[in-house]
Amino acid sequence: MTALIRIWAVALLTFLIDQASKVWVIYGLDLPLVRVVEVFPPYLTFIMGWNRGINFGLLSDSPEWSRIILISIAIGVSILLSFWGRKADRWRMWAAFGMIIGGALGNAIDRVLYGAVADFLNMSCCGFQNPYTFNVADIFIFAGAGLLLVYGGRDLEQSKA
């Protein structure tokens, strides 16, 4: 199996997990109507948020056409990461590229379906009340980026040798 197939297999799994979590909270829990579900307060609370911008709600007041730009960026990044990772020969690189691609496309499809990214996870601790929400795709993107930062240079260099 080639690296691209492995990367896209991870991306598909990531995408499906993300979208299943969003379907569950949006339609199963009816979180847009309920607004808040305390799962394990204050450590984990579901709070419905619709992010029209980028991380932490930046650019959320941008015009409608910016949604198309953000969708295009997600697709472009996915193509670039596929190209970059096509020669990767280690599982953690396939996982890293796949998690970022799957997460980016999961958030992009939200923009297509809902006009915004569905965020619902909120975690607070130790007297700190986190004002932000995020979603499963964001977790995968962060984990994939972390893998690339920790192992990317070394693994990709070893792949070339």
Rank of each mutant, 00 (worst) to 15 (best):
S21W: 08
S21H: 02
S21A: 15
K22C: 04
K22R: 04
V23D: 10
W24K: 01
W24D: 05
W24H: 11
V25R: 08
Y27L: 14
Y27A: 11
G28F: 09
L29Q: 11
D30Q: 15
D30K: 11
L31I: 03
P32A: 06
L33D: 06
V37W: 11
E38F: 04
V39R: 07
V39D: 03
F40C: 06
P41I: 07
Y43N: 12
T45V: 15
T45C: 06
M48I: 07
N51F: 12
R52I: 08
G53L: 10
G53H: 03
I54V: 15
I54E: 03
N55F: 10
G57S: 05
G57D: 12
L58E: 03
S60G: 11
D61T: 08
E64F: 11
E64I: 10
E64V: 15
W65F: 15
I68C: 07
I69K: 00
S72C: 10
A74F: 03
A74C: 06
A74S: 11
S78F: 00
I79Y: 12
L80W: 13
L81Q: 02
L81Y: 02
L81C: 02
S82C: 10
S82Y: 09
S82P: 09
F83Q: 05
F83E: 04
R86W: 15
K87N: 15
K87Q: 14
A88E: 14
R90D: 14
W91T: 12
W91P: 08
R92A: 08
R92E: 15
M93W: 14
W94A: 05
A95T: 10
A95F: 10
A95M: 14
F97P: 00
I100F: 01
I101Q: 00
G102N: 03
G103H: 02
A104I: 00
L105D: 02
G106C: 10
G106A: 07
N107W: 10
N107H: 05
N107S: 13
N107C: 13
I109F: 07
R111E: 12
R111V: 13
V112F: 13
L113C: 04
Y114N: 11
G115S: 12
G115Q: 13
G115D: 10
A116P: 09
V117T: 12
D119Y: 07
F120H: 02
F120L: 09
F120V: 05
C125F: 14
G127D: 09
G127I: 05
F128H: 09
P131E: 11
Y132T: 07
Y132L: 15
T133I: 11
T133F: 08
T133G: 09
N135A: 08
V136L: 11
V136H: 04
I139H: 00
I141L: 05
I141Q: 03
F142E: 05
G144C: 03
A145N: 04
G146P: 09
L147K: 01
L147M: 09
L148F: 06
L149D: 10
V150L: 13
Y151R: 01
